[in-house]
Design a protein around this nucleic acid. Structure first.
Lengths: 256, 256
DNA sequence: ATTAATAAGTGTAAAAATTACACATTTTGT
DNA sequence: ACAAAATGTGTAATTTTTACACTTATTAAT
């Protein structure tokens, strides 16, 4: 039914194979490898993306993800965090590899594949500095400008991944300041999943995970009554993880 | 607290930036891009991986994932399915990009990044043909030989991903023949999650997803009584997906 | 023809998780 | 003192998940 090893389709390979393949590495094209970062932030209301105005050709002046090229002596993660650092000045940022984009024509100048990463940054503690030196701007994820190349596709994939990830692991905190209130956390989840959550059910679920530590400080900036500040507690998290293999730690947003 | 755009760290970039970056693409290293396939199969009992004896230097003769290099006029997916086809002769195989591996020293010959893919193939309908021409062999996932480079890491990531994926989407069927029995399906899930499942609960859950069509044929090869054959029904799946956003379709393996 | 062996197939009750839902509290500005 | 605004709390109904044991169909052996 199916062909057994379609030799005829692969003349180049076969030659090498038959020749003993002593130098299989030679004769293969090298390509440019880019890294692009989808940088998420959160401003207490909306999920945001940090974009820059591209300052070189082609498509100079258009909005783009922060990107750069892989250097010979850098690992992929290393390169991505260098690039992120170039834009934001930040270090030790949550950064996860997203996907490799490699359509032949994705970059009009030259064959380039791009490994996309996404980053979660806490804009509260940094706010202005980040944007200072570059022509960069925060956009609401649902009001993005046109982006160059396949960056729109990257963003879409990143949002999907962020939903997955935050539904299975407590990484949302990376988008919040060290101390945050439960209403803030809820708004974050609402922004990520683009839905509304019931206050009481949300609190019960989050608190039952046993990974938050309540402080006795109150955040009074945004309400008269004030809301208690909580902190994500790595140790509690690790304890819970080992207690039950992580199954209690997933946050499934309720059905519509 | 944090540095604002650390210009000093980036002499090369800066020069280009200040020079206007007219030719930003020049002066960046091109690297070899490999593709490696983690090929999953299932033999009614155990989850399997298809490995080949590497037939070129370095580490010729050692076990390896099926891999190859990206060609200038191929997209990543295209290249991965070509490579998969070279080994198995199969087409239209479930193939998903897994992760980009890019440690500087992962390949001793030359800087190479590898985009790993994983494939799910139905070994029942093909069994012998697949292994015929290459020095390839099926291994139990829990009895793998040593692998070259970082292939062990790739396999580990692939298993994790397979668990994720099968817990959220009905892709397990790709590892089974077109028609399969519920005990077979259960054994597959048990193999993937390395756990034991209760027969009654398993059947209830799977059937309640409403994506299986029962045929009136019985599979009698493996039991005296015989078990009814089922088929995965794409249309039913799509119907269910739109009915409830997929939330009923996830298969969460029970806690130990 | 009876019997033993083997895997397929089925139901129910208890426990846990999820959902829906409404009012009281604290504080500030007027 | 009172209006406004956001925080914070409890309970009952429903759904989902879990635990658990016997019957059925068939074949091979006697």
């Amino acid at each position: 039914m199916h062909m057994v090893v379609p030799l005829s389709v692969e003349p180049v390979q076969i030659t090498k194979r038959q020749a003993g393949m002593e130098n299989y590495y030679k004769g293969h094209g090298r390509v440019l490898v880019a890294l692009d970062c989808i940088i998420f932030g959160f401003d207490r209301k909306k999920l945001k993306l940090l974009l820059i105005k591209r300052n070189f050709e082609p498509q100079k002046g258009e909005w783009s993800l922060m990107g750069g090229f892989l250097r010979p002596h850098e690992g992929l993660d290393e390169a991505a965090s260098r690039i992120l650092n170039e834009l934001t000045g930040l270090e030790n940022i949550y950064l996860e590899q997203l996907y490799g984009f490699g359509e032949v024509d994705r970059d009009p100048v030259e064959r380039t594949i791009s490994i996309a990463f996404y980053a979660l940054i806490n804009t509260h503690d940094h706010d202005e500095e980040i944007v200072s030196d570059f022509d960069a701007r925060w956009f609401d994820v649902d009001e993005l400008p046109d982006l160059i190349f396949d960056h729109q596709k990257m963003v879409k994939a990143a949002i999907t991944r962020l939903r997955y990830r935050t539904s299975l692991e407590p990484v949302g905190f990376e988008l919040l300041p060290d101390k945050f209130t439960l209403p803030e956390l809820q708004q974050l989840y609402e922004a990520i999943y683009d839905t509304n959550l019931d206050k009481r059910n949300f609190r019960r679920r989050i608190l039952s995970m046993n990974v938050l530590e309540k402080t006795d400080e109150k955040q009074k900036k945004y309400s008269r009554k004030g809301a208690f500040l909580y902190r994500f507690d790595q140790d509690k998290y690790r304890t819970e993880l080992s207690r039950n293999g992580g199954s209690n730690l997933s946050f499934k947003p309720p059905k519509v």
